[in-house]
Design a protein around this nucleic acid. Structure first.
Length: 516
DNA sequence: AAAAAAC
């Protein structure tokens, strides 16, 4: 079982953004070792498919088996195509390992030009987005996304490495602005992410004539059974939304025509497909689109794919190309992680106010993560009562309140934001240098083991696109200690101790992190 | 001893 899973695992080390590259490159560039590893990966593929066949049941088996037979039939071409993707130059610097579903040859994109994007789209990339060349994950995935036969793709890459650009370019390159019907859908887990992603689409699409619609602009849910159903059919090409509203638009309201949808994106895909996440809605959306128009390209993107959801995704998304990263390679070196053991719950406030805030003031912006909605507003009240300027956001607030809090934080007016996990994923604000886990993320049911993926997403709110960042974990109980140790082991990363009562410890540590 | 969306 474990062997099989290991074979399944395809690592993509070094999906690191530009600024961090120098360090990483030293590690990977000199030896020819990864080349050997590549060969092994190539040779293992037929065997891997057999393992997969044994493990899977039902519908999926047929598909995977077909694939395995294909491979057995023409091992030469498979091996050849695998070799073709070992594009020497790119390979040497990216160390990306990927698996492709057929014998379509893909060459890593060193420039955006070679992707055959429209001039309008390229202009958006250069003059609006100020992008020069593809990041590593972009170089690896964009050819897979935009090259016929438009295979499905499951792609994992580090926090802040440029995944959004991958799927936004994917969507924009596939839609026809002359056709006034929905052609691309992007599903996101939160309202904030919908708004953020829509802004990227609008910016990148500036010269293309493509328009967007999003569930966040729709009227809020009270008064409007009427006004929503009265809405006209959507004529925009790119639709961005949260799963519930998208589903309603497709089924009850019938304002979202899915017959022309060519590409369907799941951002934060592991959460969107997780059973305790949005699995039901996501599957429903996929099925409905598949029924009204087959052959829709599905893209899954996330920084994390826990083992279960990874297997589910591979079973669910047929004939997908995929790229995965070993979990041990996921924590970014640019984000230094610390733990502060507090003698009692009250000391958390003390550490926050007297140790962290004074140091944080000079840095940039900070996000403090807590476990519940209630503790978000409680901590907010407490800090405000003590004279600290901060805001808080959680799903219990009205949409207007949430928008307002985010807008103030985006503008830099507020430096300290208290948040539940509504903001743990995807939120992209370059100025965030500090993440504080006021509570460690844990599962909601006994034995309250750590939520590894959430931890990684939270600390990934800092250190965007290779910038430096720091994360402080406040611990009180023995269970906190145990859970943090598990997190260290899980990601094979070092979380150093900082004394809670030392005046200078935080300052010193931030200097070490390259922040002070 | 939960959060997210949304009914």
């Amino acid at each position: 079982m474990e062997e099989a899973e290991k074979n399944q695992e395809v690592a993509a080390d070094g999906l690191v953004p530009k600024l961090e590259k120098e360090e990483k490159e030293e590690v990977v560039s000199s030896s020819g070792k990864h080349e050997e590893e590549e060969q092994q990966v190539v040779e293992k593929i037929p065997e891997k498919q057999e393992d997969l066949m044994e493990k899977l049941e039902g519908l999926t088996v047929t598909k995977v088996a077909d694939k395995a037979e294909d491979m057995a039939d023409k091992p030469e071409s498979v091996v050849n195509s695998e070799r073709q993707q070992l594009d020497a130059a790119v390979e040497a610097e990216t160390e990306i390992k990927k698996v492709i579903a057929d014998d379509t040859p893909y060459t890593s994109a060193k420039t955006f030009e070679e992707l055959n994007l429209s001039p309008e789209l390229l202009q958006g990339l250069y003059s609006e987005m100020k992008f020069e060349k593809p990041s590593k994950i972009q170089a690896a995935t964009l050819p897979m996304i935009v090259t016929p036969p438009y295979r499905n793709l499951i792609a994992q890459a580090h926090n802040g490495s440029g995944k959004t650009t991958c799927f936004v370019l994917g969507m924009l390159s596939r839609v026809d602005p002359k056709l006034k019907v929905p052609q691309a859908i992007c599903v996101c887990p939160t309202r904030e992410l919908v708004i953020q992603n829509e802004a990227v689409v609008v910016k990148m699409a500036k010269y293309t004539g493509v328009t967007t619609a999003s569930t966040a602009n729709a009227d809020s849910s009270n008064s409007l059974t009427h006004s929503v159903s009265r809405r006209d059919r959507i004529v925009d090409q790119v639709i961005i939304g949260t799963p519930g509203t998208l589903k309603r638009w497709m089924t009850r309201d019938k304002i979202l025509d899915t017959r022309s949808i060519k590409i369907l994106v799941f951002d934060e895909a592991d959460q969107m497909l997780d059973q305790s996440g949005f699995q039901d809605d996501s599957m429903r959306i996929m099925r409905d689109i598949d029924r009204s128009r087959g052959n829709c390209q599905v893209l899954l993107f996330s920084a994390t794919f826990g083992e279960n959801v990874k297997q589910f995704a591979l079973r669910t998304i047929p004939r997908a190309n995929y790229i995965f990263v070993e979990k041990e390679a996921l924590s970014l070196d640019a984000i230094k992680q610390y733990k502060i053991h507090c003698p009692n719950p009250g000391a958390k406030i003390d550490v926050l106010q007297n140790r962290i805030f004074p140091a944080a003031e000079k840095l940039g912006q900070s996000i403090i993560f807590v476990r519940t909605r209630h503790s978000a507003s409680e901590l907010h009240k407490r800090l405000e009562a003590d004279g600290y300027k901060c805001t808080s956001i959680q799903g219990g607030l009205s949409h207007e309140e949430r928008d307002h809090v985010i807008q103030e934080f985006r503008s830099g007016e507020t430096k300290i934001l208290i948040a539940t996990d509504v903001l743990s994923r995807g939120f992209d604000q370059a100025q965030v240098t500090l993440v504080i886990n006021y509570d460690i993320p844990v599962k909601s049911v006994p034995p309250y083991t750590p939520e590894f993926e959430t931890y990684l997403h939270r600390i990934g709110r800092s250190g965007r696109f290779g910038r430096k960042g720091a994360a402080f974990n406040l611990l009180v109980t023995d269970q906190d200690e145990r859970n943090l140790r598990k997190i260290e082991q899980h990601f094979n990363t070092m979380i150093s101790d900082v004394a809670w009562d030392d005046d200078n410890a935080i300052e010193k540590v931030l200097k070490d992190a390259g922040l002070a």
